[in-house]
Nucleic acid binder design. Structure first.
Length: 506
RNA sequence: GCCCCUAUCGUCUAGCGGUCUAGGACAUCGCCCUCUCACGGCGGUAACACCAGUUCAAAUCUGGUUGGGGGUACCA
């Protein structure tokens, strides 16, 4: 199999080792899952290894709840991992437990001369830049690069503590990006950067590559927002390799953003960015995964509904597009609808259960806890409802009139006003016909014939005019599951009761 | 300011120098099917940001312009 990119993008390692390493700071986000999905798909396609690790270095923002939600999200989506949290020694996979490791590496970097102590404060750097006529945003000027021991001692006597900075070589930094192709940062593009704060806290620029190196990660697929940190990390990798800590510099692939409305990255404020909100709306994993994979990648020129197996068979990160993609809820819903229709009816019902249970329509949200009668009824209803919902939650109002026979029917807003004397006559006639039907004759096709003869043929009404009042009477809605099947399922007594009830409202 | 990324219908994309009067999907509009809705079928509207250059030939290669995004941190 050859794709356009095989010839001009880097070849992937024989045994790819990828990782997904979010920070536990909030509700699982669609952009985050998009990144996780692409890492997963690449790992599964290549037979590689996916590592799941937590970048929890910010104790002010990190929460246990967030961690639990991220795990729940991955499990719900079916994104599994081979190494990492919950699989082996968790001390390897939580950065919050690894401060000594980073400090140890920092010490080695310092002793080898790859990093140096920097005593300059932000104010001093800004002043020097100003004095030299450089723009304020110029950044660090390398002032502490070659401080003598005496100078350092003098700073220490002032009570200063040094940050540790990486000595950035004066040369172009290039890499061949898996999604963007060759990228070069010219020499001097960025200054010596801090890897350890004066108080000893290691920074992302250090912790991320160090863990990747220790876990022998050879492919890094991450968001475009991390692109500017890559040349810095490449510098660091060169040093880590010299110290024997890193085996190689990994291949990098910078994935496109998932955008929201306007030209903004999908933010936590956008409701459609919240994975669990999408689940509550009634997305199924297959649909959401399918849609998300399409944001920056395509399955083929003329097919965009496919299974996870098909995705894995075809996915290649080198085919991913570099430009950001907008999250389009309408298309996401449409793709979801296709996947709902492909579900086995029993599977469909089982997945509807939580939504039905939440509204008090069924007594349990677990299939096994339902009575045989309940199961049988749901299974009869499923094929009627399944092809006409796009989200699982939409099944609730459609199933309700078929399941809840005791409750008072609620009529849809504005559905009663247009009713006329003609509709009243239709209901009268329907009532008369249906009352005479024997129990054993109460079948969808019999009722269809009966009502067609009476209402359409004898009353000379168009089919819509004839059946819609009946539909409204038994469902409370203008849109419902197929009428005659519904009549059969609801049963004669309740149908008679509901039609009489609506008749009296006209 | 400087650096980096990016640019095909409203949206997601196919396109890899000739097969492009640019294909598919969602959305939208019309028609058919039809007990409603959905499904399904048929058809319509709708895009190569701009300017140069290379070439017999450019959506495709090169340069520039413009637009969008990101960075320029002791954030990630």
């Amino acid at each position: 199999m050859s794709t356009k990119n095989d010839k001009d993008k880097p070849s992937i390692p024989e045994h790819p080792r990828l990782r997904f390493c979010p920070s536990p700071t909030g509700i699982p986000h669609v952009g985050m899952i998009h990144t996780a999905l692409y890492n997963w798909a690449e790992a599964r396609h290549t037979g590689g290894t996916l590592i799941f690790r937590m970048e929890d270095t910010d104790d002010r923002r990190d929460t246990k709840e967030s961690l639990d939600m991220i795990i729940e999200a991955l499990e719900w989506m079916g994104i599994d991992w081979d190494e990492g949290i919950g699989k082996g020694n968790d001390d390897l996979y939580f950065q919050s437990r690894r401060k000594e490791v980073y400090q140890g590496v920092a010490k080695q970097l310092f002793e080898a001369g790859f990093a140096y102590e920097s005593f300059s404060t932000a104010e001093e750097i800004a002043e020097r830049n100003k004095a030299a006529g450089r723009p304020e945003t110029f950044g660090y000027d390398g002032f502490d690069r070659n401080l003598t021991e005496e100078q350092k001692e003098a700073f220490r006597k002032e009570g200063r503590k040094p940050a540790l900075r990486i000595r950035v070589p004066d040369e172009d930094i290039s890499w061949d990006d898996l999604v963007r192709g060759p990228i070069t940062y010219k020499a001097g593009s960025f200054p010596d950067f801090v890897i350890v704060r004066p108080n000893g806290d290691p920074l992302y620029t250090l912790t991320n590559p160090v863990d990747d190196a220790i876990l022998d990660v050879n492919m890094v697929l991450r968001g475009e927002d991390l692109l500017p940190s890559t040349p810095r990390q490449i510098v660091l990798y060169e040093y880590l390799k010299k110290l024997g800590i890193a085996k190689q510099t990994p291949l990098f692939g910078h994935l496109p953003y998932v955008m929201g409305e306007g030209n903004k990255k999908l933010s936590k404020r956008d409701p459609q960015s919240n994975l669990f909100l999408l689940r509550d709306m009634g997305f199924i994993r297959e649909g959401l995964l399918n849609y998300l994979s399409l944001l920056g990648w395509s399955y083929s020129a003329d097919q965009d509904v496919f299974s996870m197996e098909e995705l894995v068979a075809k996915f290649d990160v080198r085919d991913v597009k570099a430009n950001p993609a907008r999250f389009d809820l309408k298309k996401a819903i449409s793709i979801n609808a296709s996947h709902i229709r492909m579900l086995d009816p029993e599977d469909f019902v089982k997945r509807c259960l939580p939504y039905l249970f939440k509204e008090g329509i069924v007594p349990a949200d677990k299939w096994d806890e339902l009575s045989a009668d309940d199961k049988a009824l749901l299974l009869r209803i499923a094929p009627l409802v399944q092809p006409r919902v796009r989200l699982l939650s939409e099944a609730v109002p459609m199933m309700l009139p078929l399941i809840d026979k005791a409750g008072e029917l609620e009529f849809e807003e504005g559905s009663l006003e247009p009713l006329t004397e003609g509709d009243k006559a239709v209901l009268d006639r329907a009532l008369k016909e249906l009352e005479n039907v024997q129990d054993e004759e109460w079948k969808a096709d019999t009722l269809h014939t009966l009502l067609t003869d009476a209402l359409v043929n004898e009353m000379s009404l168009p089919a819509k005019k004839a059946f819609n009042p009946v539909r409204l009477a038994i469902s409370g809605k203008k849109v419902s599951a197929p009428l005659f099947e519904s009549l059969e399922i609801i049963g004669k007594p309740v149908v008679i009761e509901r039609i009489s009830s609506l008749r009296s409202k006209i």
